[in-house]
Structure formats: structure tokens, C-alpha cells
Design a protein around this nucleic acid. Sequence first.
RNA 1: GCCGGAGUGGCGAAAUUGGUAUACGCACCAGACUCAAAAUCUGGCGAGGUCAAACUCAUGUCGGUUCGAGUCCGACCUCCGGCACCA
Length: 850
Amino acid sequence: MDEKYFPEEIEKKWQQRWDETGAFEVRTDDPRPKFYSLEMLPYPSGFLHMGHVRNYSIGDALAWYKRLQGFNVLHPIGWDSFGQPAEQAAIKRGVNPLVWTEENIGHMRGQLRRLGISYDWSREIAAHRPDYYKWDQWFFLKMFERNLAYKRVSPVNWCPNEETVLSNEQSSGGVCWRCGAAVEKRDLEQWFFRTTDYAEQLVQDMVQIESGWPEKVLKRQRDWVGRSEGAYLDFAVKGSNKKIRVFTTRIDTIFGATAIVLAVDHPLVAELLSGSDLKRDVDAFADKVAKSRSSRGQLAEEEKEGINTGVIAINPFSGENVPVWVANYVLTEYGTGAVMSVPAHDERDFEFAQKYSLPIRQVIAPITHSQMKAEPSLVVGTDQSAVMTRSFTDYGVLINSGDWSGRLSQDAIPEMTRQAEQQGFGAAAVTYRIRDWGVSRQRFWGAPVPIIYCDKCGTVPVPYDQLPVVLPATADFTGVGESPLAGVPEFVNTTCPNCSAPARRDTDTMDTFVDSSWYFFRYCDPRNDAMPFDPAIASAWIPVDQYIGGDSHAVMHLIYTRFWTKFMRDLGLIYFDEPVKKLLTQGMVTNRVEGTDEWKAMSKSLGNGVDPDEMIAAFGADATRLFVLFAAPVENELRWSETGTEGAVRFLRRVYTLVWRWQVRFAGAAEEYSLPPGEKLSGGARALRRKTHQTIARLTGDLEQLRLNTSIAGLMELLNELADFNADPDTAGAADAFVVKEALEALVLMLTPFAPHVAEEMWEGLGHHGGLLQARWPQADPELARREELEIPVQVNGKLRSRVLASPNISEDELRAAALADDKVRGFTEGHQIVKVIIVPQRLVNVVVR
RNA sequence: GCCGGAGUGGCGAAAUUGGUAUACGCACCAGACUCAAAAUCUGGCGAGGUCAAACUCAUGUCGGUUCGAGUCCGACCUCCGGCACCA
């Protein structure tokens, strides 16, 4: 130890030592219990930002804490290194994507090491390397074999700016998730994974993780899967043998159906109208709708429009004739692309009916008090002349519904569904909003789709022994048109694995979310060249005990990885359903935007970024990390503050100086540091001991819940108590020195998760050799943590009036007597009748008077 | 519009889940050290009130339950997120 705290030297020293000894490398056959601490792997943009620092500091704190508790901790890192920016660099600046990516990784790896995050670097992986993406391709082939990967022409979301296909998730809100450009539609042949096959499991299995995942994330996933229970119903078309199938969740409103409405590209539209005069009008209308959809993502804001086709359908329940319309507000992709329109009880149908003067027939009446209050115009048995001013969408009691009138919605729904089934015109049904995952990208910098097209044999999977399908070293990066791979003849031209005739490779690459769906399985067995991972090894580590990342991945990545896990389970690679036990979605790191009062996520374009390297240079990695963890609860937004970081340095320096002052005594004398039996401690020493043990208990609880900010506050309190104790190392007696040593050791050990370098340095200074990896988290003695004397507040009628001193084992009677005898309390009770005295043992006395 | 979450000092935030509101830190103020500054150390720091105290009022607003409410219940206001024609 140096006399002064020089973070740079200490950090360099310990980083080097950790590196040389491979300190954080772990083995799967270690007998200790395992713990898997995982942070979302970074995209190698070239530079770490403060969000990364926060993410990895949280994960590292947990990893160190668990190590000190005796766990075998897997804490790996890798690179999500396929994706657009590398290709953009190639297009704009002519840099080779591989060179660009490897350079970025090199720089960021250096930054992570300077931060001193305790990773097992021997397990580092990168998605763009053939030994990784080989397994993306392997999984693709497995999907293909099981009919979970299929190809179809489909209108895809197309970003005109980046000229690439976007998934539904990536284009939510009608804008590109990365660049914000308005999304268009295009028809392309695309590969899809059947995520819809797993829709039900994705919802059902949430019960397995709901205790460990934020409710917010689960809710978004539930919404995303969009499970909806209802029924299919077939409406016969008059004068034809065709039927129109609709999906509804409100079969109980069917007597109020006054139209059938089809989506513009519903297949029946063309059939029903062939030869009709209206066909041209409807086609023109369909074109118009398609155009306006591609230019604007905001469907909800569009005015409802439709055309009456003149076709008549028959309501299977009432036998009534209803007109068939085509309209822009019905979605092709959801349900059956056709709905029964019930204006009285559906907002959208109501709006549509008003515009086209369709009849609005009430068939559900409100029954509860709050419904009545909200809908004064609607009453049971209302006459048909009553005018509805808006739709009534609650459940209620059926009216004007033939034999069903008088039934409750809740009862009518299952019974009407049963009748529809029995009579053969309907069935109970569950629909989902989730769609299949489009994985094709017309991109160079991704894992090539391992498929070959042969004129004779058609679509042929690349044989497993020919994997990986390696990306060519380079291509023409024009940034426009089809995939760059299509312009590389050596890549495209191949022979058919079946018949050896000349054939062509698929020129698309896979979505990068494929890479990130299973990467943390690969960490467990990163150099396996026979399989993506050994099932036994992966099962020894996974499920991940704690996963940490931004909540921007609440739906995309975190749904895909759950899907992938279930798929791997069905392949027989693993036997569990869910990959992640506990999830933490950390808050953003924000900074003030210069010249404004706004706090926004740090970004280059706003000019409010903070460079982690500069922080490390100015304050040290330990102080930077400590501040980031202390400044706010992990899930909150963190507002950047430089003075806050100075405060963190101040704290570390105070601890360091104290250790320095005492280490001479601890290292020099051959004193035995145990408390001599029967030795009486001074009041101050007892208080310090108590604080030490209270702090241990507090931190142990807080860290389990990742309450890092309060943990650090606890350490600061302990330091303050140590400073107040103010014993002199040169003259302190053995008992005082023992108490100080106990406090300092606990402080240093518990500081390790937040500031590991300086903790190592101080731990060594306190005379321990072998480093913190040999050390153990301190144990709290509950007996010592307990107060020996309590200052118990005394209230009169709930207002604090005084305090009395009492020992913790004082009886209730004694406490009551002491409280009532207190001068101040007597001042407030005099002249009143004491009704009762409430005593919360060891806590409080409340005297109730009248 | 619908669904979540949150409102506590000048600021980030605590409060063992109904029991001393404002821990810890930042900023600020005063003092010590210094020729001076920085650093460091000591003290102060919700509002009103007073020489000082007593005391009063304060956890978005209004009401309720309770001996006692930041915490529970009801209504409302504001802010932040998510979803948005999903039948």
C-alpha cells in the first residue's frame, strides 16, 4: 500500500494480477454451487458508453458478492458483432466489415479491462466468427427439418433508409427502430421461424418466471403474444355455397351484427365479386388502402372507409340477412381477416356504422351500478328508438336476442359457442397477435442462410458436414438493392448436395436476433466444435440466475430467447422451459442536454455523452463504478453528475487513508486479534461493533435484492462510525484495535463488489495474502447487532412527545410505567383520562387519552 | 383512448412493509488549517416560530380506516413509460 490513494496504479496492478492468474476463469466441474451472472452482450460499436458501464458494474457487483459467498460464478462476455453499422461503415467509408468489427472489439475489450470487470475472458465469443455462426446455421437447419423454418412471399416491412427488411418488432409504430424512418411495404421471399407455434407456451410458461421478472416486462410480453379467446363463426353467403368465417370474442353480441366486414385483401373478396360491376371500385379501394398503409404506420388515426359489396350473408343465429362490406379498418393478418360488425357494442364498428348510416342495434344492456351511471341512456328492455351516443362495450345482460335474451354475457358466451359447434357453424378458438419471426435480411454482415436452390431438386438444405457456410471476405457494398452476397459469384454458385448439378446459394443472411437468442448457452461450452454446446454442461449452468440489461429488449430479444429455449428443449438439447430465472431491467443513464433543462439518454448526436475512459482517467474505475451504483436504484434513470463521482472518490480515499493508518499496527505487531475473554469494551467500541454487524446484516439483505445504492450508503455509515470512534493506532488498547480491525475488514470485504481494485489493495494492506478470491463474505452476529439500550419514542394520541431509555428485554409493564412516569408525557396526560396504552415491543409506546 | 409505474428537502434518494419522515450522498453556508487558493477536517442545512426553547405545519390534492398513514382504502390532479383499429 502506498500512503496516498492513487487509483491508476492500484487498478493497473490488480488488473494485471487478475489477468496473469486467470482469476475469474471457472470450471464446470467445480464442486461449489453455481451462479450465473449475465449481462446483455454489447454490440461492438467501437466505444463503451455509460449505459454499458452501469450494466456491467451491476453484474460485476453481483458476481463478486456471490464469489465471496462461496459460489462458483460464471461471468462471461462476448460480442453481438453482426449487424448494420459494420455494413454502413463499409458502404460509407469503404472499410471492410470484418476489419472494422475486430478493431472495435479490440478497443472495447481494452475499455472493459480498464474498468476491471471480472469476466472469464477465456469464454469470450463473437457472433461474426465462423465458429459461432456455424451454429446459427446448424439451428436453422434443425428448424427447417422440423418445419419451424419456412419460406413464403410476404409483404415485409421495408426501411427505405437502410434498405432492409425489418421485423414487426423492429418497425413498431410504423417507424424503423434504429433510424426512425417511416416503414414501407414490399413483397419479398422471406424465411420465417414459426414463433406462433410456441405462442401458447410463451404465455403459459410465464408462471415459471413471474417471481423473478419485472411485471412490466411480463406484461409487455403478454401483450405482444396477444392471446385472445373467442370463437370462429361461419356466415353463409346468400346465393352461393361460400362461407365467410369471422373471429369474435363477443359471440353474445351476434344479434346486433348489422354487417360483415372483410379486410381489403381477404381472399373471398375477389371470388365473391368476380363478374360484378363493383369489382373495379373495390380493387381501386384496395390499392388506395395498401398505399396509405405503407406510407403511414398509424392505422388508428386513419378514417374508417369501406364499400358495400352488395353481397348478403346470413346470420347463423338469427337467420337475418346482413350486408357484406369491405373496409380499411379490418386487419388481414389477425383472426380470419373478417369480422362481424356490431356497432352498438364495439367502438370501431360504431364509428363505421355512423359514417355509413348502418343500423345500430343494442343487444346488451348494462346491469351494474357503475355501468348505469356511465350509460344513462341504456336501460334494460330499451325501446329501439333510443339513440346510442357511443358503443357499450362492457359485459351485461342480453336483450333483443331471441331466446338468449335475459342471459348474462358471461354465461351466454360459452353456451352460444357450444350451440354454434353443435350446429356446425362455429367453434371455440384462440387467436394470437404474435406473428412468425421473419429472419431473412438482404444484408452482407450476418450469418448466411444455409440453403441451396437447385433447378432439379428445389430447396436443399446445406448438409451439416458442410457447415459453416462462410461469408466471403468482401463484396460490393453499394448500399442499395438486393443482398450484397448476390453480387459475389464465388459465393452464390455452388453445386447441389443432392444431384451435384450447378446450383445457387440463398443470398440472405439471418437477423442478428438469431445470434443473441442462444449466446449465453455458448458461453458455457464456448469451444465445442461438435455441437452448439454440450447439453450436460449447459444444464449445469443454465437457467441464468440473474440477467441484466436495458428494458428496450423487453419484447424482442427476451421473447426470441424464450422461444429459442423451448425449441432447443424440443430438440432434446436441454430439459427446462425457461432460460432466465431473474431479470433486471436497469434504468437509462442520462445527462443534461447542453443549453436545455432536459435530461436525455447519452448520445453522440445530442452531444451529451460521457466517455468512460475520461472518467477512469480522472477518478479511477473504482470511483466511477461506485458512483454509478450509488447514485440511484438500479432500475431508475440515472442522471449523470461529475460532482457525484468526486464524492465517490472522497469516500474511497477516506477508507483508504484509514486502512493505511492502521495497517502499520496490524502488520507490525504480532498481536493476536481476538477479543480477550472478559475484556470490557468501551461504549464507543461497543457501538462500533454493533454498527459493523448491523451493516453486514443490512448489506447481505440488500445485495440479494440488488439494492446497491442502499448497500453503499450502509458502507458509508460504517465508515462514519469508524471515523467517529477515532481511536489512535499507536496508542489504542488491544480491545479497541480488535474492534477497529473487525470493522475495517468487514468494510473492505463488503466494498469489494463496488470497488474491487482498491478493496484488493486494502485487503492486502490488512495483512491478508492470496487476494479476495480466497476471502469470505463476513457473517453478522445478530446478538452483536442488537442494541443494548433502546431509545423508545413515546407518543400521546399518536404525536411524538418524548423518548425513554430502555433495555431490549424490558417487560411491557415496566415500559408502560417508564413512559407514564416521564415528565414530558405527564405534561400532556395531566387532566385527561388515559384510555389505553399501546406498546409495540422494542419500538414504541402510544398513550391514548381523552 | 387503453394498460402499467411514479409523485417525499435545492438535487439523487432512504424509511426494516402500519410505528422516531427526510438515512447516505451531492450542492450550499459557516469555521479550522493556509500569505492565499485548492484539498482536507469540524459543524450546520424541510418550512414557520423563538435570543434560545416550547410548539405548529410538512411525503401531489381532497376525503376515509386506525391509538398511529409516505405506507392501507376511495375520488381526483400531474408526470413518465408501454400499447394503439388485434374484433
